[in-house]
Design a binder for these strands. Structure first.
Length: 423
RNA sequence: GUGGGUGUAGCUCAGUCGGUAGAGCACUGGGUUGUGGUCCCAGGUGUCGCGGGUUCAAUUCCCGUCACUCACCCCA
């Protein structure tokens, strides 16, 4: 006999822990909405060439981590490994960049990378992202960073840090890249690292091995070789971050795995997670619109990992999301009471109250236990005796206080007891 | 792709120096003919990951395999 299991490396969220997941996602989205980012919902797969061109052939994401397959029409399609390329494609396709700029968009959903799973690394990962397209104003860079930071803080996280740097642009990065390659060429590198030095020399800089870090101590850094325009841009971004009260540290060796990044790049790092410590990251991509066939507009965005943010909240001991399934739990004693409470539950829900009821003819003890486990603040108990009097017993579960309420007034009484806004 | 660790009840795990297995949690009922969260009592489940080998006998020892997991790599 065989049973089914979820595909390898894919996390699933179900009650009660799913409350933390959805609350984290919604809170991160809310932070973006507060800055005027409009919601965009996009396909979870695109034609493969979009990622090859947009993200970069040389990246690990494209070269070995994509879920790529042929559809029945013989087209090569790929489950989205990240969000920016798809957003930019949609912006170009639908001419969203013809109106007021910057165009500000946010999204949430699953992304897919074929990697070996481990703590905090999944094959289906959930991100909340934003993209702001059509302005290279450094204040916009600061805004994007700040709403990411604000999103984490709204969840209650405090144990993370923000690292930023500038990767330069097409004006200054090629010269720096040569300088770095020249430097790396003089080092005794192993074969893998030497290959990386040729394909993407910047990535050699954040090698974790201590002996490599020692070798790289005197390596030239991009931030020391920025052109005047990039230098000024970076300085102004940092100035705005100070104005916004966002704390950050500079990490001149930070590297991003996607080729499109230019100038400002940043990462949110949490130390409570094990090896996969990045909970979110992003940056500028000033060449991407043109690369994908659109106007030569600049852009900046981020992707925040919902799964890892949930893990970070757990690591900090935070309780995120409403742990209660409902506000009121109905306990009927006998068939007549049950018939009445089924209707009462419907009326309460119509008034915006979350209600559950003891189904299946549970005994009183069992029904009260179910009420307790549901997390409800109140139980509504109705038996034959109450029915005869036209009353229900409204019991506050935390205190045990119970009082009779006329059945006809129950919706109003519950509404008042829960202090809900009047409809 | 490369290493290490672990597979026993729905969950978290104990255990058997080889004689087919247990505790807590959870669930259901009762103690309380109409009151939960504490307490007490009762109830049920396991192809001991899978396949092969050694043995009178394997969940235990050996080999293989698969799965999960952590780390490298890379990233959210």
């Amino acid at each position: 006999m065989s049973t089914f299991s979820a595909p390898k490396g894919i996390p699933e969220y179900f009650p009660p822990s799913s409350a933390a997941f959805s609350t984290v996602r919604d809170t991160l989205l809310r932070s973006a909405a507060l800055a005027g980012y409009g919601y965009i919902e996009l396909p979870v797969f695109e034609e493969t060439a979009l990622y090859a061109r947009g993200v970069g052939e040389s990246t690990d994401v494209v070269s070995k981590e994509m879920y790529t397959f042929q559809d029945k029409g013989g087209r090569s399609v790929t489950l989205r490994p990240e969000g920016t390329a798809g957003v930019v494609r949609s912006v170009i396709e639908h001419g969203l960049d013809r109106g007021q700029l910057p165009l500000k968009l946010c999204y949430a959903g699953p992304f897919f990378r074929y990697e070996r799973p481990q703590a905090g690394r999944y094959r289906q990962l959930q991100q909340v992202g934003v993209e702001a397209i059509g302005s290279d104003d450094p204040a916009l860079d600061a805004e994007v960073v700040a709403i990411g930071d604000a999103g984490y803080r709204a969840i209650g996280l405090t144990g993370f840090r923000l690292e930023i740097t500038s990767l330069g642009d097409t004006n200054c990065r090629p010269a720096y890249r040569e300088l770095l390659q020249e430097f790396l060429g003089r080092l005794p590198l192993d074969e893998d690292t030497r290959r990386r030095a040729e394909v993407n020399p910047l990535r050699v800089l954040d090698d974790k091995r201590p002996e490599m870090q020692a070798l790289l101590a005197d390596a030239p850094l991009m931030v020391d070789h920025l052109c005047d325009a990039c230098r000024e841009h970076f300085d102004r971004v940092k100035g705005y971050l100070v104005d916004l009260g966002v704390k950050f540290t500079e990490n001149p060796r930070m590297v991003r795995g996607l080729d499109y990044y230019t100038r400002t790049t940043f990462e949110f790092v949490h130390d409570g997670l094990g090896a996969q410590s990045g909970i979110g990251g992003g940056g500028r991509y000033d060449g991407l619109m043109a690369e994908l066939g659109g106007q030569p507009l600049s852009g900046i965005g981020y992707g925040l990992g919902v799964d890892r943010t949930v893990l970070a909240a757990e690591a900090e001991g935070l309780t995120v999301g409403d742990q209660a399934r409902c506000d009121v739990f109905c306990v009927p004693l006998g068939d007549a009471a049950k018939d009445r409470l089924v209707a009462v539950a419907g009326a309460l829900r119509a008034a915006g109250v979350r209600v559950d009821l003891a189904y299946g003819g549970k005994g009183l003890k069992g029904a009260m236990k179910a009420a307790d486990r549901s997390g409800a603040r109140y139980a509504v108990v109705v038996g034959e005796r109450d029915l005869a009097e036209g009353a229900a017993q409204l019991k506050e579960l935390s205190s045990g206080d119970q009082r009779p309420v006329p059945l006809v007034d129950l919706v109003g009484a519950v509404h008042e007891a829960l202090a809900l806004p009047t409809p």
